[in-house]
Amino acid sequence: MKEILLNPQLWSATLAMATPLALPALGGTFSERSGVVNIAMEGIMLIAAFFAVLFAHLTGSAWLGLLGAVIVGMIVAVIFAWAAVTLTADQVILGMAINIFASGFTAYLLNTIFGFSGTPTDTPMLPNINIPIIKNIPFVGQILSGNSIIVYLMIILIFASDYFLFHTNLGLRIRAVGENPEAAETAGINVIKLRYLGVALSGLFSAIGGAYLSIGLLNSFSTDMSSGRGYIALAAMIFGKWTPFGSFGAALLFGFATALSMQLQNSALSKNIIMMLPYILTVLALVGVGGKSVSPAADGVPYTPKK
């Protein structure tokens, strides 16, 4: 066990596995703080992962792949927002619909565009970044340097999100809309517009997370490759009490469980038991063991403007 814990690979894998959870968890924080439960993040990640590969392959540039993924992901998010916010449909059901659609649509396109042989092996990848000085520090350098650029982008986004949500006027308004939309509207805040913003941000972050899976960690797409990360991100967000730093911490914990189970590949018993832990911890956090997680008061409740 000690050998495993002292292996820098375990810790860099933790960071790599936490990234595609932390990004949608951050996105979910914006969406739920504005009052919209967005389980469609799972489907948005998957669609973004596919289009990242498609655009990267077509243009020969991983960056344009990322851009394409973000655009498509945000289009899906806005469609979701239209149905959920403007048409006040049930958010969880809509999210499920989008996830089933995404799973079928990406698999269908994978087969019709690339055939049964899968995505091309020459698809470009987003670069890994070596950080000068840090990369020469033993142990720490192997963990903190040489990661995908998305990992560093994620870390910047966490700080930026925390600042935006808790230290700007717009962030305050988003939170107000998620806690008490009636009062917010009375104070002259446009509830609908801010909820669109929250959902669009969740689409943006999930899309980056999805692109990371297909052109950051790998350079290929396979069916259902998001494998529930959008859902696990929701758990991380709840476990992190709807805050950016909390979400990141929970994502690290969940990423650690995944990385550890990968290291324990040979021992099926401990591997599967470890994989259960994040889910059990989330249930315990919701029930209130060790400081209860309380959602924004108007989370998931559609709002119809009074005027």
Binding site: A83, L87, L94, F101, S103, G104
Partner: peptide, 22 residues
């Protein structure tokens, strides 16, 4: 036709059932 088309249809059905205002 790739069989996953039925998942696409399933997703769309539920979307329109949920957002019946459409």
């Amino acid at each position: 036709v790739p069989g996953q088309l039925t998942d696409v249809i399933t997703g769309l059905i539920i979307f329109f059932v949920a957002a019946d205002k459409i």
